[in-house]
Design a protein around this nucleic acid. Structure first.
Lengths: 218, 218
DNA sequence: TAATTTATTGCACTAAATGCAAGTTTGTAA
DNA sequence: TTACAAACTTGCATTTAGTGCAATAAATTA
């Protein structure tokens, strides 16, 4: 996470900031609870503000829209991933960095069981799906940035990492769909992820051969 | 395009269907004109329905939301691309199919000068950006489907093509951003696309080597 | 404590989106 | 042609999202 450990936060946090954070968290939690309970479209902003005991007007002081509550709540995955990338040993290979970082982020994500329920909610709510795609796009860019920060490459390297990020995020999306569609009873998340990685590196290796052939053939 | 040639349409189209299509096109056109003229947020549904001479209520019989008008209008790119993929000679290589299909779709896209203006509009309108990402996601999936329809591969092949589609769409997105950010004065769209393709295949070839190394090293 | 910044709220307002019922147009089959 | 059914259009009422503004309350700083 981008946040500092609790003690430091408490020290540097005045009452005002603390209250604000608490209110934000309260809105987020109550909203999520209601969304999961009765669906996104069947929950009005007033329902949320009533549950969180703030005025309707204040809601928009914290979140620009109803959709953003969901987006903000699950933004944590991106933060985890980026931090995990930065935390890998400097001499680790690109592939190892990605595997380790994603495993770390996934591990953090499933620690809260609501993550899975939210994923289903998004899948079944058109209004949320569009915003969800934006999240993938942001993730793609952030991942490329984080990888680039490690490698310090030039312009061309940057593009290479963007393509890699696209492939990785695509794998995440497909993996998420597979996991949701057929809840892998027998398989642990670790094994599932390992399989997806095998497929990903296999696919990239294979596509690389095609690309090389094409480049040398002309 | 998915549409049949004009004659056939006229034959199989009753007055009712024709009127409906015309009304839809009228709404689409008037809306686009207004959006480009005074911005998306500064155009109300009533402005549109007045210009298109339909009731406000009818608008929602044609489009589920204001955003969808923009989305529908530029969906044509996806259709062009898919059709172009299907139209390639059956023995063409994967790489060649993609290059040819994208070139064809791009060519069709820039034939209407409003395409570029719409791209800028989307970039500058938050409400449209989210929806726009959905378009990329759809494009990715459609492209993977179209490629898969040609290759008739198994489950693993399908995944491989999804990764490829992700890389290609990512290239399109980055290319679009570059084109918008620095309007390539000297470069033609063809040359620009060729450069992007070179980078893409280069990146894939390079990543393939990494992946192969990793797979064999363990 | 006084002054200042920041947070919260109520109120009024615009605009998107939906449901419903009444009226109109079009297609079809006797 | 006529008569009937289906599809299209519209107006009206209603709900809800989201914004601007001005007044109030709370926290910070001096």
């Amino acid at each position: 996470m981008a946040d500092l450990p609790g003690v430091d936060v408490a020290v540097r946090e005045g009452r005002r900031e603390r209250k604000r954070r608490q209110t934000r968290e309260r809105i987020e939690n109550e909203a999520l609870t209601l969304f999961l309970e009765r669906g996104f479209d069947n929950t009005t902003i007033e329902d949320i503000t009533e549950a969180a005991d703030v005025s309707k007007r204040s809601f928009f002081d914290y979140f620009p829209s109803k959709e953003d509550v969901v987006a903000a709540w699950q933004d944590s995955f991106a933060s985890e991933l980026i931090d995990a990338v930065a935390a890998q040993p400097p001499d680790a290979s690109l592939v190892n960095v990605i595997e380790a970082a994603i495993n770390a982020a996934l591990h953090a994500a499933i620690s809260d069981p609501r993550h899975l329920a939210v994923a289903v909610l998004i899948r079944d709510t058109p209004a949320l799906r569009a915003r969800d795609q934006l999240k993938y796009a942001k993730l793609e860019r952030k991942l490329a940035d984080a990888l680039h920060a490690r490698c310090r490459g030039d312009h061309k390297e940057r593009f290479r990492l963007s393509v890699l990020a696209a492939a990785v995020v695509s794998m995440l999306r497909i993996g998420g769909e597979r996991w949701n569609d057929a809840p892998q009873e027998g398989t642990s998340l670790e094994d599932f992820a390992r399989n997806m990685f095998d497929e990903l590196w296999g696919a990239l290796a294979d596509l690389g051969v095609h690309a090389q052939q094409y480049l040398s053939d002309r």
